Computed example of a mutant assay.
Amino acid sequence: MTGSGSFVIVVGFDGSENSRHALKWAVDEAKLRDGQLRLITVWSKPPLAWYPALLETAVGDKKVTEDSPQQVAETIQAAALKTAEDEGVTATGQVVHSDSAASAVLDAATAADLVVVGSRGHGGFPGLHLGSVSTQVSSHAPCPVLVVHPKES
């Protein structure tokens, strides 16, 4: 356990279905252990992107502002924090700008008792059974890692 006296679970959360399963598992585990969650949401700016992007509508004059990747990440994380709060679990969050989600989760794992990630996030290739982030995290984390797979329907 960490020196804080509370069982700390780091959760990599990107809003994908698999990360929602990981969050649910982590919330349940935190309740059992009287622990706390530390949610990590990573964003990166696509090359050559300008935000906020203004898009012309078919009508011509009206413009629609597209949310930046950071705004999307902050919105995703706020929803995850609310989920934990609604379940009565103490949770903090960090939105990180990085080209490597795995590195951001691993940095947070240095002060954790457990890391929980989904088996796949938004990136990667559909045929993979384990995502690149979960593979890197499970290979390099300084604490136990749980990779949550979705239940078969």
Rank of each mutant, 00 (worst) to 15 (best):
K63D: 08
V105A: 05
A111D: 10
S44T: 07
L106G: 04
E56M: 15
D113M: 03
H129N: 10
S44Q: 10
T2R: 00
Q77I: 05
H129W: 07
W43D: 00
G123E: 08
G118A: 13
T92N: 07
S4W: 01
H129C: 14
T75H: 12
P47T: 00
A108E: 10
E66D: 15
H97Q: 06
A53P: 08
S68C: 12
V116R: 13
E29H: 03
R20S: 15
S4V: 00
F13H: 15
Q71S: 02
F7V: 07
V117P: 15
E87M: 03
S68F: 10
V59S: 07
G12Q: 13
A111E: 14
P47I: 08
D34Y: 06
Q70C: 06
A112H: 11
E85W: 00
V89D: 01
V11G: 12
A104I: 12
G60S: 10
D61A: 12
G121C: 04
G15V: 04
K45W: 04
I76V: 07
H97T: 12
P52D: 07
K62R: 12
P69D: 01
L54G: 15
K24E: 15
E66T: 14
G127Q: 14
A53E: 10
T57Q: 09
G3T: 05
S44L: 02
S103P: 07
E17F: 12
L114W: 03
K82S: 10
K31W: 00
L128N: 10
D99G: 04
T57P: 09
S4E: 05
A112G: 11
A108K: 08
A108Q: 02
L128D: 13
V96E: 04
Q36M: 05
K63T: 12
V59L: 13
L32S: 09
D67A: 05
N18V: 15
E74V: 00
A30R: 06
P47R: 01
L32T: 09
T41S: 09
M1W: 03
G12K: 08
L128T: 13
D113G: 05
I9P: 03
T92P: 01
S68K: 02
L39E: 11
P46S: 09
K45G: 08
G121W: 03
S103A: 10
G121I: 09
A101N: 03
V116S: 15
Q94I: 04
T65V: 08
R20D: 14
S19P: 13
V42K: 02
V96Y: 03
A58Y: 11
V72F: 02
E66G: 09
E29P: 08
K24T: 15
L114I: 10
G127L: 12
H122T: 14
V27L: 05
V89T: 10
L55D: 04
D14G: 07
G60L: 11
S98E: 09
D99T: 11
W25K: 14
A84R: 08
A91G: 01
W25Q: 11
Q94A: 10
E56N: 13
A111C: 12
A49M: 01
S100H: 02
A108P: 04
W50I: 15
W43R: 00
G88R: 07
D107F: 11
S103G: 10
D113Y: 02
